[in-house]
Design a protein around this nucleic acid. Structure first.
Lengths: 199, 199, 199, 199
DNA sequence: CATGAATGAGAGTTCATTCAT
DNA sequence: CATGAATGAACTCTCATTCAT
């Protein structure tokens, strides 16, 4: 992600920085942001705490960087969505792409979902909220009946739920993803039809 | 127990334990468990930190007590659900009751949802997980097609989403609740019919 | 020990006070003075901490009372010793009596020996030191050669050691006491003879 | 390692760990382990409490480190003693060496003797007990008559007593040491002869 | 690039003690 | 005689952060 062809200098340079990000995300996702200390991250990497400060000015900046790096695909998705007509087909395509984006940034999203209270107070809190609202705005028609709006929200949450709750439902991982996506698609379709009838 | 007719002093003195719980829940829900210090709770109540320790042995015990006190309705619901036949009507009734239970314990549930990473490490983590699994087990038929199982899970998550995300959707609070419940009911109905067709 | 024939009122009255002393001494001896909290003592007795304060003004007063009650025999011994001629036979008799006094107040002495640093800062510290010096003064002749003085001190310490270190030497308890006393007596005898020769 | 020729700054900066140990031992020996707080130690060194934690993970680790560093000579003595024949001459040599080892680690031993109750609960408690038992085992013949065993124990305790009690006996420090050692040697000699007669 | 050493602030927790009831 | 409720001071320990080297 953001890795250019040329690697020599970047690898040397970017290596530690990236390793910090990797370890930090893993620990943040596992234990939460507050309970993960810089000491712990440093120990996992076999460097000193002070070394972290060479690469990131504060603890907060570590997860800010993670957020920015890993949610780029969703940012792209939103931009793309904005330029599309608000048809059912568009919404289906958004769901498909969003589903994939989630898979790509799973640990971050798990972290964000499980540490909402913390995230809210961090600098990324607003960015995240904005992003979610943007996504909602290209996904939900504010003039549609309330029930149909709920169906759309439900569709998105179904995708989220798919990431975490589904883990302890038995079955092939691939098949579960498909099932989740199918339910979400159905919900949007129903929302679309429901809105039609009203209008 | 030294209870005088007049209530003013009683209120100040007699129910500190409850007041601790109230303030703690409020702050936990707002800022998260880790970021809420006992000093802060004590200051809100105008007592010393040590006073908290007269009523609760540890910080953790405060939220444990909240959890136990406030999730009793859901415990009851699960017990009731177990004794019912696994019909569609039962599931609808469960959704209705669960929806109400959520409203009653909203701050706690908001807290649990927004501090999952923290909760997981606390003593209530397992209790919560167990409770959720029990609920799922009386709600989902493991022999049904995967898609229909997902629909059921989605129904429950729709209720959860209803509590938080819906807050910034415009509309009358009462009506939103109804809409959320309707979507959830629909999902379960569809799941039921889908399962029929297969079998 | 200070218990009169009549017991009714004294027992009621003295009962709790004495029970506090008993439990306190046991815990002090086992864990040390600092590590034993009043909460712990109260819990062992199934009363509240505040109850302890009815019987003793402070924590320190508890061990002061123990000290005063239990070292009376030694106080008596010292007084008796003072009125006797400084003969070898007197010293032997002192050893015999001291040995017995130690047995009677074993837990207290164990406590005093194992918490010297603490005791020193307590009010009993000086009292104890005084008592020990008094004992030494009737036991040691300051004009005797240094080696003989050491022998006398060694005799007394042999009795002390007998209480604690001997516990994990195998053998009948009674016999061990006798052996300890014998060694101590020997040391004093030698000291006496050594002093003679010099003089 | 950044060691400059000049020593002044080095002394301030470079050997904080050692300075902590020195001050800690001094205070522990004077006031006891429990009554000595890390704040106090830090203040004596003119650093913050947190600085102590850079050098030692816990308060306990401070005295563990002291114990390990300062009892090495005794450890060596035990090892040496094990390889020697159990003759009287060996025992005399052990006493001589032990006497010297005690002088070298006087504050630590004073601490251990005056804080036995505390030490027992610390990690060094067992290590100390083991060490003492090992010493006893190379010093005492378990088949000897009880009285002779007591004489040996008494000899060792005489050395211990020599460290503390003798402080307030008047006389030249050097001479006192010699007198103490002489009494201890005598006791062992007598024990040896006593055992002979029996066997 | 990275370390060693340190700090200031604050956390949760425990303690001896007090006092109205 | 004893309790319930509370306090103030202290404790051990952890954290994010800084900076000279």
């Amino acid at each position: 992600m953001g890795v250019t062809m040329d690697g020599t200098k970047q690898q040397r340079r970017g290596n530690t920085r990236q390793r910090i990000q990797d370890v930090a995300l893993e620990l943040f996702a596992e234990q939460g942001y507050e309970k993960t200390s810089l000491r712990e991250i440093a120990e996992h990497l076999d460097v000193t705490k002070a070394a972290l400060y060479y690469h990131f000015k504060t603890k907060e900046e570590i997860i800010v960087s993670l957020f920015e790096d890993l949610t780029q695909p969703i940012q792209d998705l939103i931009e793309w969505g904005r330029s599309q007509p608000h048809t059912l087909e568009t919404k289906h395509e958004i769901l498909r792409r969003y589903s994939q984006a989630l898979v790509g940034a799973e640990p971050l999203f798990r972290f964000m979902q499980e540490n909402q209270a913390t995230v809210r107070e961090l600098r990324i809190g607003d960015a995240f909220k904005d992003r979610m609202r943007d996504l909602r705005d290209i996904f939900i028609d504010p003039d549609a009946p309330l029930v149909e709006q709920v169906r759309c929200i439900s569709a998105m949450f179904t995708l989220h739920a798919g990431m975490f709750v589904m883990q302890d439902v038995e079955g092939d991982s691939e098949k579960k993803h498909e099932a989740v996506l199918e339910v979400a698609m159905d919900l949007v379709t129903q929302a679309h039809q429901g809105a039609r009838k009203e209008g």
